[in-house]
Structures are given as structure tokens and as C-alpha cells.
Design a protein around this nucleic acid. Sequence first.
DNA 1: TCGTTATGCAAACGACCGTTCGTTATCCTC
DNA 2: GAGGATAACGAACGGTCGTTTGCATAACGA
Lengths: 204, 204
Amino acid sequence: MSPRSSATGAARTRAEIIDAAVGQASLEGLEAITIGRLAGRLGMSKAGVIGPFGTKEELQLAALESANAVFRREVWDPVASAEPGLGRLEALMESWLSFLGSDVFPGGCFITQAAADFDGREGSVRAAVEETSRLWERVLCREARAAIGRGELPAGTDPRQIAFELGAIAQGVNQARQLRREQDAAGRGRRAMRRVLGLTDDRA
Amino acid sequence: MSPRSSATGAARTRAEIIDAAVGQASLEGLEAITIGRLAGRLGMSKAGVIGPFGTKEELQLAALESANAVFRREVWDPVASAEPGLGRLEALMESWLSFLGSDVFPGGCFITQAAADFDGREGSVRAAVEETSRLWERVLCREARAAIGRGELPAGTDPRQIAFELGAIAQGVNQARQLRREQDAAGRGRRAMRRVLGLTDDRA
DNA sequence: TCGTTATGCAAACGACCGTTCGTTATCCTC
DNA sequence: GAGGATAACGAACGGTCGTTTGCATAACGA
């Protein structure tokens, strides 16, 4: 079931195809992946690549699901055991920034890439991307709500506004790093996030 | 020279092709535009479409240039005559939000779309997209610097940080509207921008 | 050990890709 | 009116796209 490295036969092949698809998609977009190029990169035939999925659309959905799992493992899991509230939200942002600065996905944030690629289309992949985006925003929102409930953020704060702003900043970091290749993208993002969370380390 | 609606013969055709290409690109990405589909939509032959540009890459560059001109006309020009400083920066943000909420580009912000599409590639189009992004950030930065110089933003404020955050918020608005179809995307963006600019209309 | 079931390959399909070529219609200038 | 430039056409090029089909071969359960 798990797409980790070992496994036997078909499951292993399937995981390798998905990994290659995720890499390709993070660079050029989920729609730009191509059966033929994946086959070339993997040293397989086109039929062998598409076989386990039946359809390119199913392969796209599998790649998205895999990228979600990677994101959860890299960003959420490290802070999952902490207590809900501002502390965990702060740790989550650090985790997120570290992820955006890594090369886990060679082309940067997979969801941002997929969102731009599919927000003007219709179909099941678009729906899955939208749902992923919604789910992650719900996570941020829940965490912000916990922080408000504990009095760590001002009463009356709108948790959805916090979630929106944190997500926007992450998008900005991703673009600064991937498009403009700014060295200090993470630093700018950190400052912005800390200001949103009231953890001002600069002038009032 | 200007791609406005009237004009004679070839220039007019060229402008029509570019308009169609911009529309298509804002929906599905600058790389996903296709000579054949443009020809179909325009009732022309493929040769007639690619003729004025010679190459798809040149057509992409022309589409990007046109989108830049539209952006400047819709967002910058309305505030260009005001005095530099916080007032104009605020007006610029309103102008930007209004633009993001309009359907000038059917698929949302052209640059965000193009950035995601090309930030993992190489070549002249990528370079042009990057330069556009840099240029716009420089505009925001210059405006923030003016506001700081006039004492309308706290001394010691980093104008590049302001530019980064405003740009990130716009990206967030675009994704909220285009992917998640949130009704109040502009409202969230406005609140976030005003907070960045110290124009707090919510609780301290 | 032998059928059965997976697993992946080679080849081919029709469709569309970007680009090139030669030709035609239309206009402007002598 | 004749002649030349211009603009767009239709047809074709070699490739690549996603998908389907039939055939090997490897693995497995009896």
C-alpha cells in the first residue's frame, strides 16, 4: 500500500512511475507530464508506464495523492505531536518554510504548480487540486482557532483570515525562490509569517 | 504600433491573434497554447496564425508583452498621476484588487499563471516572465520607499519586505478566487494589504 | 511440474503538434 | 491596366501525443 522504496513487483513499479511523474509535474506542471517522456526516463515502454493506471488522468490523480502524502510527511508530521495552538502553528510555519527551501520537489511547491495549471480547467484533477487546497487551509484555520481559543492570538481575530495570509505568504516564498531565485525568500516569508502571528521580532 | 482594436490589415490580425493567445494562456498556461486551437477559434489557418510571429516562442513573448501592457493600463495607469507615497500605494492596491476581481483575463492573473508554468524551464520566455515579475516588484518597492521617506510608514521599514508581502497577498487572492472560487477573496486581500500598510481597520 | 495469472514489451492507431512550402487573393503603385 | 508586394490559405512534413492490442516471459499456486 505504501509507496516506499521497497515492495515487490507491480507495487514497486507503480511507485517508481509516480515518483517520476511527481518530479516532472513539479517542474513543468501536472498537465505537461507525458507518458512517452516518463517511459524514456524510466527505461520502460509507454504501455508499461500507463498500464498500472489505465489513463493519464488516473496517473495525474495518483501523482497528486502522492505529492499530498509527501507534503504531509515533510511538513505536518514533524509537528503533529505538539499541542494545538500558537506554538504548533509557529513550528508548522518553520516546517513549511524549510520544506519550500528544500529540493523535495525539484520545481517547488507542487500544489501551487498544480493550482495554476488546473484552475482554468474542469474535471476530476481540478476538483482534487481544489480539495487539497481547501483541506490545507482548513488545517491552518483550525490551528489558528486553537491559538485564539487559548488567548495566544487576540480575541476577535478571524482564523480564516490568518489561514489566508499564511497561505499567501507561502505562495510568495515559492515564487520568489522558483521564479526570481531570490536567496532570502525564506527569510522574507518568515518575517511576514511572524508578523501575521503577532510574533514581531522587528520594530513595532 | 499599438494593439488597439482598429488598425489596418496585418497589424489588426496580429493583435487579434495575440488577444486570443492571451485569453487561452490565462486559462491553461502560456505553454499550453496551441497554434491549431488558436486557428480554430479565430477561423484562420494554422499558417496564418503562426505567420506574423514565425515561431511559437515569439508568439508567447508577444502574448506576454501584451498582457503586461494590459496590466499596466488596468492597474498602474489609473493611479499614475497621483503623488508617490502611501496614498498612491493604497490606491494601487485597490486598483490591483479590482483587476484581480474582474474578468479582464478569463483565467486570472496572467503573470502568476506564467510564473508557475515557466519557473521550472529555461529559455527566453522564462527570462521574460522573470523580468516582468522583477519589474513589478521594483515598482512596489519604489512606492514603499517613497512612503517611508515621507514618514507615512515607520522609519526602518524594509521596502522590499513590503513589496514582497503585497505581492504574496495578490497571489493569494488570485488562487482563492480562481482555484477555490471564494467569493470574498478580494476582501481578505484588502484586509491583509491594509494591515501590511499599517492602515488597520480591524482590532489592534 | 504444469496451468494460471500477473507484468511489461513492441508495434500500431488516429489525432494533433509546430513548422514549411507553394499558391492564391487583395491591394498599392506606377 | 500591368506589376509587385502583402496576407492568408490549403496541404503536407516529421514528431509526439494518449491509448489499444497482441505477445512474450516471469512468478505463483496447485
